[in-house]
């Protein structure tokens, strides 16, 4: 049986980079993971008579005490998305020094995000603002809110830590092939942008509404 190829027909070979396809499929699974939690949170806030928007039991302004650290973290993650895309440009140009500079800043911003998040968690624990704290136990709305808050921001923080480790590994990479190296940077950058997109939704839902 003969196989007709695109080249035989004089057409350009159109093949998707399997690595990029794989990372996008992985991101799809991550969207489903976070999407389920987001849907549960929205249903709890809008659908429950105890926790609904405007109900006195729900923390007004959510975690307003942590608004400024969260705003700082939003700006930190957005900036890191910008620096990682610049790192990708440098890798595609074959500019290793430029890549190390931009990716170094990205890694530093990732560490900064986790440090601010750690500070925010420490404040919450210090004031007893946990699902099992006395304050929350006296108020079911707060209890539900803090359960969602720690689950979703914690899961996101875990993703940031993984992305940080991935970026740091690339920073120390000695890959001799510029094309292959640029592809590796692209995969890591896609993951890092996804982490940023998740935070873009977490920020208003947990700190502003």
């Amino acid at each position: 049986m003969s196989v007709v190829t695109a080249a035989a027909l004089g057409l350009p070979e159109e093949r998707e980079d399997p690595g990029k396809l794989g990372i996008w499929l992985f991101l799809l699974s991550e969207v489903l993971l976070f999407g389920g939690f987001f849907a549960a949170y929205v249903m709890t806030r809008w659908g429950s008579p105890v926790c609904a928007l405007g109900a006195p039991a729900w923390p007004e302004g959510a975690a307003r005490s942590a608004l400024y650290p969260a705003l700082l973290n939003t700006l930190v993650l957005i900036t890191s998305s910008y620096t990682v895309v610049r790192a990708l440009c440098a890798a595609q140009r074959g500019d290793r020094a430029g890549f190390r500079r931009e990716m170094g800043v990205t890694v530093a911003l990732g560490v900064c995000f986790l440090a601010v998040k750690g500070f925010e968690y420490a404040l919450k624990f210090h004031h007893g603002l946990t699902p099992g704290g006395e304050f929350a136990l006296a108020n079911p709305g707060f209890r539900v809110f803090f359960s969602f808050y720690f689950l979703m921001t914690g899961l996101h923080g875990l993703h940031v830590a993984v992305g940080l480790a991935w970026n740091a590994l690339l920073l120390g990479s000695r890959d001799a092939s510029p094309e292959r190296f640029a592809r590796k940077v692209e995969y890591a950058a896609l993951y890092w942008h996804f982490v940023d997109v998740v935070w873009v939704f977490l920020f208003p839902l947990f700190y502003l509404i």
Binding site: L28, V31, F38
Partner: peptide, 9 residues
């Protein structure tokens, strides 16, 4: 693939 994620959410 990206659109599938958005549609699923």
């Amino acid at each position: 693939i990206a659109a599938a994620g958005v549609l699923a959410v």
